[in-house]
C-alpha cells in the first residue's frame, strides 16, 4: 500500500517536473518578450519625447494638436509618446501570452486580434466624438457669450454631454457591448431631455427668450456704431 502511494506521488512529482520543464522555455520566452516589449515601448516613448518640440510643431502645422495641447504637460507630443508606449507594450503582452502555447492563451490572443478592428473603430469613434464635442461645446460657449444668453456654460455643458452620449452609444455599438440595453437607455434619456427642453421652453424659457429678443432688438435700434 505504502509502496503504491510512493509510486503515485513519485509519478505525479515527475509529471509536474516534466510539465514545468516543458513549459519553462515558454515562460522564459514570455518573460523575455515582456521585458523586450517594455524596453522597445519605453524606447519609442523616449524617442518621441526627445522629438517633442519638432513633433509638437508638426502636429500643430497639421492642425491636430490644438485640442491635445490642452491635456497634460508637454503638449500633444507627450500624449502621442504615451500612446506609442501602450501600443508597443500591449502588442508585446499579446505576443507573450501566445508564447505560452496554451489553449486558453491562444484563444485569448485570437479573440483579442479578432476584436482589434472593433476596438480600433470604437477608439476612433470615441476620439472623433471627443473632438467634435469639444469643438461644438466651445463654439456654443462663445456664441452664447457674444449673443448675451445668460447660462453660456450650461449651454456648452449641454452640448458636450449630448455629443458625449451619442459618442458612447456609437462606440458601444462598435464594441457590440449590450447593444439593446445601451440603445434603449439612450432613447429613453434622449426622449427625456427633449421632453424636459420642450416643457422648459413652453413654460418658462419662452418668456426669457422673448425678453432677450426684445432687449437685443432695442439695444440694436439704440446703437448705430459703425465698426469698420
Amino acid at each position: 500500500m505504502i509502496q503504491e502511494l510512493r509510486f503515485i506521488l513519485g509519478d505525479s512529482w515527475q509529471r509536474l517536473v516534466q510539465q514545468i520543464l516543458h513549459l519553462l522555455p515558454n515562460v522564459l520566452a514570455m518573460l523575455l518578450i515582456l521585458v523586450a516589449g517594455w524596453i522597445v515601448a519605453r524606447l519609442a516613448q523616449w524617442i518621441l519625447h526627445g522629438m517633442s518640440a519638432r513633433l509638437n510643431a508638426k502636429l500643430r502645422s497639421w492642425g491636430i494638436s490644438t485640442w491635445m495641447d490642452e491635456y497634460g504637460r508637454g503638449g500633444a507630443a507627450h500624449l502621442v509618446a504615451r500612446l506609442a508606449f501602450w501600443v508597443f507594450f500591449g502588442v508585446s503582452i499579446l505576443m507573450a501570452i501566445n508564447a505560452l502555447h496554451t489553449e486558453i492563451g491562444s484563444r485569448l490572443v485570437t479573440s483579442a486580434f479578432l476584436y482589434m478592428p472593433r476596438l480600433v473603430t470604437a477608439a476612433l469613434v470615441a476620439l472623433a466624438g471627443l473632438l467634435l464635442g469639444r469643438y461644438l461645446a466651445r463654439s456654443a460657449l462663445i456664441w452664447a457669450v457674444n449673443e448675451g444668453i445668460g447660462p453660456a456654460r450650461w449651454i456648452a455643458a449641454g452640448v458636450r454631454v449630448g455629443i458625449g452620449l451619442l459618442t458612447f452609444v456609437a462606440a458601444a455599438e462598435q464594441l457590440a457591448v449590450a447593444r439593446t440595453a445601451v440603445l434603449a437607455t439612450f432613447i429613453i434619456l434622449l426622449s427625456g431631455i427633449v421632453l424636459a427642453a420642450a416643457l422648459a421652453v413652453g413654460l418658462g424659457a419662452r418668456k426669457r427668450l422673448e425678453q432677450w429678443l426684445d432687449r437685443r432688438e432695442s439695444s440694436l435700434e439704440q446703437e448705430h456704431l459703425e465698426h469698420l
Binding site: 500643430r60 502645422s61 492642425g63 494638436s65 490644438t66 495641447d69 469643438y135 466651445r138 463654439s139 462663445i142 456664441w143 457669450v145 457674444n146
Partner: peptide, 15 residues
C-alpha cells in the same frame, strides 16, 4: 501658433 481653433480664437476676441 494655432493654439486654439482660429474661429474660436477670433470670436472670443469680441467681448
Amino acid at each position: 501658433a494655432r493654439r486654439v481653433h482660429p474661429d474660436h480664437l477670433l470670436r472670443s476676441l469680441t467681448p
